[in-house]
Amino acid sequence: MTDLGARLSAIDEQIADAARRAGRDATEISRIVVTKFHPAELVRELASLGVREVGENRQQELSVKRDELEALDLTWHFIGQAQTNKAAAIRRSADIVHSVDRVRLADALHRAVEDDSVLDVLVQINLTPDAGRGGVQPAEAAALAEHVLALPSLRLRGVMAVAPLDEEPASAFARLHRVAEEVRGVAPDATWISAGMTGDFAEAIAAGATHLRIGSAITGPRPDRG
């Protein structure tokens, strides 16, 4: 087994263990491999190991890799902060956008539709008091969800968040779970919770996460961009 395969297997075992401890079925949890800054060849190797869901933080990198790997059976998740002027490019390359955090971005993604396709999206929640961080404040999440529901080319799947560095992940994800319930109050089908990275996915699973975003624990250190 390659080092990449060994790391992938180790993470999958840890996910299964965390799911068992939480009384959950691990098969209901999606593991997204974040390949930020890694070459397309690594994504190709991941696909050969059975990976089907990959995530990218930057629009340009997403677009280039998707074009190069078009023949592979992959689902591409855009998980980074999105600029409205890149909405069309994101929409062309992403199957799912995790980071819809404002009305203007939702509108831009909707306007960028070029056919009768429907784009899966999640509302990103800011779990910190810093308004400059990505994500809508929890109290505003339901209103943004209602706005997304009114855009026919978008399909609201649920919520996404990153746990703050200065708070215990379990506490942060418990708050996210409550926000997810509020969103489901206006969108009953929006059942996804995208939460949990390498250092906190066990806590995210315990709080009901359905999608985990895991990078370097699987891919190894990011390449030197210099």
Rank of each mutant, 00 (worst) to 15 (best):
D3T: 10
A6T: 13
A6E: 15
L8S: 12
A10T: 11
A10M: 12
I11E: 14
E13G: 09
Q14M: 15
Q14Y: 11
A16W: 12
D17C: 14
A18W: 08
A19K: 15
T27W: 03
T27I: 11
E28V: 12
E28F: 09
V33Y: 08
V34Y: 13
T35M: 11
T35R: 06
H38F: 08
E41T: 15
L46D: 04
S48A: 14
L49D: 09
V51K: 04
V51E: 03
R52S: 08
E53P: 00
G55M: 03
E56P: 01
Q59G: 13
L62V: 00
V64P: 01
V64S: 06
V64G: 05
D67R: 09
L69P: 01
E70V: 07
T75L: 11
W76N: 00
H77A: 03
H77V: 00
F78V: 01
T84C: 06
N85A: 05
K86R: 07
I90A: 02
R91Y: 03
S93R: 05
D95R: 02
S99P: 03
V100K: 01
R102Q: 03
V103T: 06
L105N: 03
D107E: 09
L109Y: 04
R111M: 06
V118I: 05
L119N: 00
N126L: 08
P129G: 03
A131I: 05
G132W: 01
G134F: 00
G135P: 04
V136H: 09
V136P: 04
Q137F: 11
Q137K: 11
A139N: 12
V148S: 02
L149K: 00
A150C: 03
L151D: 01
R157S: 00
G158N: 00
A161Y: 03
V162A: 05
A163L: 07
A163C: 03
L165M: 14
D166R: 12
D166E: 12
D166T: 06
A170H: 12
A170P: 05
S171D: 11
R175S: 12
A180W: 10
E181I: 00
E181R: 15
E181M: 11
V183G: 05
V183E: 08
A187Y: 08
P188N: 09
I193Q: 11
I193C: 11
S194F: 13
A195F: 08
A195V: 05
G196E: 12
M197N: 13
I205N: 09
G208W: 08
A209I: 14
T219W: 10
G220T: 01
P221A: 07
R222N: 00
R222M: 05
P223I: 07
D224G: 09
